[in-house]
Design a protein around this nucleic acid. Structure first.
Lengths: 350, 350
DNA sequence: CCGGGTTGGTAATTCGTATAACCCAGCCCC
DNA sequence: GGGGCTGGGTTATACGAATTACCAACCCGG
């Protein structure tokens, strides 16, 4: 107990002793070092001994000498609390593993003290880089300490402009969603947003901007009464859909700025006895996999490409992150299901 | 570039030089080692120098000496793919952090080669222990290599009986769910299961056993036609609920063995024009947070205590895991919402 | 039979930290 | 005035792997 590393396992010295060679030989043989010549016999004996004794390299000794560890830090304000956000970790972890790296993950839950402490710990483990991920797209302040290592901001943008960021292309998403409804023949298209459009929520602002652009491009004059501010939850969809559909000039289609809002809208429409897509067409946003495919009918929505974004974050880190604050935007592809069809009037007017 | 550790940062030697003392003094002062005497002046100088230079301990050097790292491996076949499973990591990570430990997480996605390789890597990093977590409760085979470190199986049971396991108390859950419906006055209670009761799915087997026990305890004779095997998805709930309610003697209440099944049941009942809970009472299982609270009406269900289970796994590891294969079962508390009320007949017969 | 090349390996050092063992100056006390 | 204690530090070493420099033996040609 007094001796450190009491159950430390087999070391190269043990292997060397068993094979009757020096520790240096073991190292060189096991690592297949270039430019060394050893007899086949020696190689065989070393490999056999290593296998026999169940030798496993001590990563810490290696890192101590080489300076950089095979680990990447992943700090998020969520980890997996957000239902869909798991994808972002999954992507990051998969890409990291392809490079032989492991992820050191911490879910701060927004706790700044925990965040600072875990970043310190990660740095003391000489991580090759840090991914600083956010649960929802926003503009955030990155802790200064991250300047010491390669770092990238994921699913948000760095306010200071010091770090490369990765975020979804919200405006294009809003445009695509709206265009889908326009192409189906709709003219009165409402939007239930997930926040104010003058706030700091890029998703709300961007998706709305895309909605407006599509409308204008189609030569339509946006009706302010058709844009409603929800809260991103079911109730926001429910209440606003109810108001919209019982108003004087109800829309024939609704673009819900996220899937939860769309779900609330489904519930409101069901309560009003309106059918989707026959009476009202719907497009959502997020492609939340526990929700969108399982609604009846399946929800046509835009996918947040979290898997790819997670992968890309690691890739940037590995590429050395040119240390500029540029943001890389990812397109949100349309996922077609069954919540959109032509409007009644349109069909009938044929 | 040739020299290793080129940007290794400040070391104790740098601090020692700056403070005009030896490296040993720096170590002893910074670690507040017991049984040493240093003048206040020296302590001050050392601390000042350390702070000034931004000294951060090199965790690898420490581990190399001490033998054990401040990290715990977390291997799962999901990480966060399963919507609710994030809680399990969250709990584990939170508890680990309280002990000053970081989590090294890997999502294997069921890939055995990746699993083996990442376990090797974790062991080479001298993790203090490994949590082997499963997406759904089952009996699984733990890789032999885990015998080399403290390990605990989370949300499943180890077939070999070598490792302590943590799992939810399925039978009691099924009993509690059914009892809730019995207490409300229901007599014809159906169950839509999430798998066969002769299979290897403890959730399906256990919850059913609990259902039967509650029924028998109430002096009721279980009607075999009222127990249906679904698939754990919405469609399993939808199809079976439809069949159940359009049959000769429909139930007045349904226990759905998970929330997704319950959701499908909601959709089927809506289609039949039946109201919840007035026409049919419902109890679910899982308390899936993206689902159960947002259904209309809110779903009364049983909570899978993942947060606590995750915490407990780390706790067992820290306690040294007595290395027996006993399973610790966690109770699933009932979460009351609005999907249960008295049956019509019952109310009227008053 | 000596110089030089090749073959097959080893000794020694380095990374940064923790700690056991030791050392020295000053002071007290008999 | 010498022995012993105490306060205040230092020296040396180990942890495990990678790597550079070096070395010994052998072979071959002239």
């Amino acid at each position: 107990m007094n001796r450190p590393g009491s159950r430390s396992g087999t070391t190269m010295n043990d292997v060397a002793a068993a094979a009757g060679v020096s520790q240096a030989t073991v190292s060189l043989v096991l690592n297949d070092a270039a430019g060394t010549r050893f007899s086949e016999e020696t190689r065989r004996r070393v490999n056999a001994a290593a296998h026999e004794l169940g030798y496993r390299t001590n990563a810490h000794a290696k890192v101590l000498r080489d300076g950089v560890a095979g680990m990447i830090g992943f700090v998020g304000d969520f980890v997996a609390t957000a239902p869909f956000a798991g994808k972002i970790i999954e992507g990051a972890q998969a890409r990291a593993w392809e490079a032989g790296l492991l992820l050191l993950t911490v879910n701060t839950g927004g706790d700044k003290a925990l965040e600072a402490a875990s970043l310190e710990t990660m740095l003391s483990y000489k991580v090759a880089g840090v991914v600083y991920a956010a649960m929802y797209h926003r503009v955030l302040d990155v802790p200064d300490v991250l300047a010491e290592v390669p770092a990238v901001v994921l699913n948000s943008r760095d306010r200071s402009g010091r770090f490369p960021s990765i975020a979804p292309q919200e405006e294009l998403g809003g445009y695509t969603a709206t265009k889908r409804l326009l192409d189906a023949g709709h003219k009165r298209i409402a939007m239930i947003n997930i926040g104010a459009v003058d706030g700091e929520l890029p998703a709300a602002v961007g998706r709305y901007a895309g909605y407006l652009r599509a409308l204008k491009e189609a030569g339509l004059h946006p009706d302010p009464g058709l844009h409603r501010i929800g809260d991103g939850h079911e109730s926001g969809g429910f209440d606003n859909a109810l108001a919209l559909m019982t108003g004087p000039q109800p829309p024939t289609a609704i673009f819900c700025a996220n899937d939860r809002t769309a779900w609330g809208t489904y519930q409101a429409l069901a309560q009003l006895g309106l059918s989707i897509p026959h009476d009202v067409s719907l497009v959502g946003f997020d492609n939340q996999e526990t929700l969108a495919p399982h609604l009846r009918p399946g929800l046509t929505t835009l996918e947040l490409p979290f898997l790819e974004m997670g992968r890309r974050a690691i890739e940037l880190l590995l590429a050395g992150a040119e240390r500029d604050g540029s943001t890389e935007y990812f397109e949100c592809p349309l996922v077609e299901r069954h919540s959109v069809t032509a409007p009644l009037r349109f069909t009938h007017s044929h």
